[in-house]
């Protein structure tokens, strides 16, 4: 599997057919999840009426916020140890998309929170706080990569920060959970998967998988763009060097 990472050319051929599949399947699942979530699924008075329908967008975004950062950290680790170029290209492509879904999670969470808790930002919600700090980890990663002068330095600095960030995520999550558990009375909304009624569970899983596939497709396309960009830069460099 690791040689797959090693060579950009093989990745281009692989992603040329895999990315469209991810887009198609992802769009299908999201559509089905949305259709179920907004039209078919009954209102749940216990969870605040219709407002909980936002979860079909909010929960997949929260899942992607965490999963994409961990994916970026794994890619950074692979690049840092084995220097496979494709792994670095993947980490660089994941960051902006991960930040987008993390922001989406924060936005939908705060809109959901307004009618439920009466405030746009609920400091005592452990999940929202964790996602907020994931967002800062993404911003830090992108800012650091952007501040470096050469591609190789950006990759190395980014890899170090992604790994340090990943090591700290459990600690951040634990401290935030402790912080919120002390201040918060029992939260009205407990969206924990398994105990949820099946009628909500399937659309939620479909939306989650749909968003993940869409995210994967976008990452692959962004990686293709990066590979083409580097190829053009290398050709221009050779042109200047005149050999």
């Amino acid at each position: 599997m690791f040689s797959w990472f090693a060579n950009p050319h093989r990745f281009l051929t692989l992603s040329s057919w895999l990315a469209p599949i991810c887009y198609a399947l992802g769009a299908l699942l999201i559509a089905w999840g949305l259709w179920q979530g907004l039209w078919i699924v009954p209102k749940d008075e216990y969870q605040g009426g219709d407002i909980m329908r936002v979860m079909f967008l909010h929960v997949p975004a929260a899942w992607l916020a965490m999963a994409s950062y961990m994916g970026m950290a794994v890619m950074s680790f692979i690049w840092f140890i084995w220097r496979h170029e494709v792994a670095d290209i993947a980490a660089k492509a994941i960051a902006p998309l991960g930040a987008t879904w993390t922001a989406l999670c924060l936005v939908t969470g705060s809109i959901w929170g307004k009618p439920t808790w009466g405030t746009w930002w609920q400091w005592d919600d452990a999940r929202m706080m964790s996602v907020l700090f994931m967002f800062f980890l993404f911003l830090g990663y992108m800012a650091l990569r952007g501040a470096m002068d050469t591609r190789q330095k950006a990759a190395r600095a980014g890899a170090i920060l992604a790994m340090v960030g990943a090591i700290n995520v459990p600690l951040i999550k634990f401290s935030v959970d402790l912080f919120t558990s002390l201040h918060q009375d029992a939260s009205v909304i407990t969206v924990d998967g398994p105990k949820m009624a099946a009628v909500y569970l399937w659309p939620l899983l479909a939306s989650g998988l749909g968003h993940s596939l869409l995210f994967a497709g976008l990452v692959m396309t962004l990686m293709q763009a990066e590979i083409w960009q580097r190829r053009a830069a290398q050709i221009r460099a050779r042109l200047i060097a005149g050999d």
Binding site: D149, Q152, R230, A233, Q234, A237, R238, I240, A241
Partner: peptide
């Protein structure tokens, strides 16, 4: 061998 950015 050394590369600076994309230049050899």
């Amino acid at each position: 061998g050394m590369i600076r950015g994309e230049r050899i």
